[in-house]
């Protein structure tokens, strides 16, 4: 197993009391698998992602990556944030090269790798621009290229397309799916969108309302290249919608 989440739980101090955010979670993720975490707002799916990323320590349990426990963030787990989080003082090229600079790669080698990934996300002609000059969709492509160029085996994505408009969102889902067919990363992807989850995931993990635990897991048995209008696709969609709705309804009771 690539990632093993073993009894991971997390609570936060709220007004002097320990409030649980995540009840013990067990989840095994195979290499090259795409897992989408789905659940109502505040259910702890981002908390789980942040624990795997090493940004947060679990209050119980542990995460193993390649059988070694996670103790902090590291270059083996690339992260793509909803807010893009590009380095504004670096050009697009500089952003994509950042991890390679840290590794001490020679300038020529860095440039070649960065160019390759910028081509992959369709931003070749924009290499010399600064992040302020880019649209949201372009920024997120840079962030994806930056994560990939560092060649991590795992990519963690925290609602990466959540801030984009519907059209851009679908285009980027298609690009991510195309990239994954070439790059074969292990991906943990947090989303609100059931359509997005069914489009991208090998397995969709649905969490309960806060404090979150795993409610249901759906293996999506669809072809690699997916059609959002296929009967099979919409069947998964409505099946998962029904399960998520139960939780959302409870949140509003």
């Amino acid at each position: 197993m690539k990632i093993r989440v073993q009894g991971v739980a997390r609570s936060f101090r709220v007004e002097g009391r320990e409030a649980p955010a995540l009840l013990p979670i067990d989840l095994d993720v195979a290499a090259r698998e795409v897992i989408c975490l789905l659940g109502p707002s505040g259910c702890g799916k981002s908390t789980l992602l942040n624990i795997v990323a090493g940004f947060l320590q679990p209050t119980a349990g542990r995460v193993l990556v390649d059988d070694a426990p996670v103790t902090g963030p590291g270059a083996d787990r690339g992260v793509v944030f909803q807010e893009y989080v590009l380095f504004p003082w670096l050009t697009v090229q500089g952003n994509v090269e950042f991890g390679l600079v840290l590794k001490g790669l020679a300038a020529g080698e860095r440039r070649d790798i960065a160019r390759r990934y910028l081509e992959l996300v369709g931003l070749g002609p924009h290499a010399e621009k600064y992040p302020v000059q880019l649209s949201g969709g372009m920024k997120q492509r840079v962030a994806i290229a930056r994560a990939l160029a560092n060649s991590p085996s795992i990519i963690l994505m925290d609602e990466p397309f959540g801030a984009l408009d519907a059209q851009t969102r679908e285009v980027l889902q298609e690009e991510l799916s195309r990239i994954q067919r070439v790059e074969h990363k292990t991906i943990l992807f947090v989303t609100h969108s059931i359509r997005e989850a069914v489009y991208l995931a090998d397995r969709v993990v649905v969490l309960t309302k806060a404090p979150g635990r795993i409610k249901d897991v759906f293996a999506i048995k669809l072809p690699e290249v997916r059609d959002r209008f296929a009967t099979e696709f919409t069947r998964y969609e409505s099946e998962i919608t029904r399960v998520v709705k139960e939780e959302v309804a409870q949140v509003h009771q």
Partner: peptide, 13 residues
């Protein structure tokens, strides 16, 4: 911005 630090850390900084 702490997110900048997180982004850099997960790139190996």
């Amino acid at each position: 911005d702490p997110l900048l630090l997180r982004a850099a850390q997960s790139l190996g900084a």
